[in-house]
């Protein structure tokens, strides 16, 4: 996969720190699963976590915890590789990044897409929180409404492509944007563009029309 748009350092640090919302972490993990370059950066941030763990002043652990664990170990066979990688036994749809497969067990086309406006549909991830976490499917030639953000917005392309003020985004690319950016993504592929997106705060639509329809967009 030829990836041209990567994750921001600040996003990767928060991911390793465990400080991202569920939806944002899902986009990050999905991109990491296909991008060796970002994965290497993520490993450095994990190592920073290891160093910080070592730096902590020890907290007293009850005297019998070790004894209690040791007695359990005999009944506790180590996990085997096959048990751990049970995921791989499912039919693998290469279009869906591994972390996303945890929540989707059919092809992207088989999902129950819900319509926002003609040419724009979505499928919500099964959790609630601040901001949104969903798949967004936009028809060729359609544009997302112009908007900016109160917080961060992460978008990973799974199919098709789009262009906006920042650049051209194709499969595997991730757009990692914040409140400094106002943009209007336009789908420029011949097929529908399907993206995995997450925000950590509501979007701010910048046109009057956008503001009027915001209540029905679910953003």
């Amino acid at each position: 996969m030829n990836i041209n748009h990567h994750l921001d350092d600040a996003t990767l640090v928060s991911y390793s720190a465990g400080a991202l919302s569920q939806g944002m972490a899902l986009v990050v993990a999905s991109h990491l699963s296909v991008c060796p370059q970002c994965r290497q950066r993520a490993e450095i941030n994990d190592a920073v976590g290891g160093v910080l763990l070592e730096s902590l002043e020890s907290e007293t652990v009850s005297d019998d915890m070790l004894a209690s664990i040791l007695t359990q170990l005999d009944d506790l066979p180590a996990e085997t590789h096959s048990a751990v990688s049970g995921l791989t036994r499912k039919t693998i749809d290469p279009e869906i990044p591994a972390p996303l497969r945890e929540y989707i067990d059919c092809s992207l086309d088989q999902l129950e897409w819900k319509r926002i406006v003609p040419g724009v549909t979505y499928y919500d991830m099964p959790w609630e929180g601040r901001g949104v976490s969903r798949l967004l499917r936009i028809a060729p030639g359609k544009a997302m409404l112009a908007h900016t953000h109160n917080g961060n917005e992460l978008t990973m392309v799974l199919r098709g492509s789009f262009s906006d003020e920042v650049g051209h985004f194709r499969r595997g690319d991730v757009a990692d944007l914040d409140d400094q950016i106002e943009h209007q993504p336009l789908v420029d592929s011949e097929v529908d563009c399907i993206c995995l997106i997450a925000t950590d705060a509501p979007l701010r639509f910048t046109t009057l029309f956008g503001k009027l329809v915001q209540p029905i967009t679910g953003f």
């Binding site: 640090v13 928060s14 720190a17 961060n152």
Partner: peptide, 13 residues
């Protein structure tokens, strides 16, 4: 900000 991220799990916002 590094400590607040790693030790307190706080988001950027």
């Amino acid at each position: 900000v590094i400590y607040m991220s790693y030790f307190e799990g706080r988001s950027h916002g």
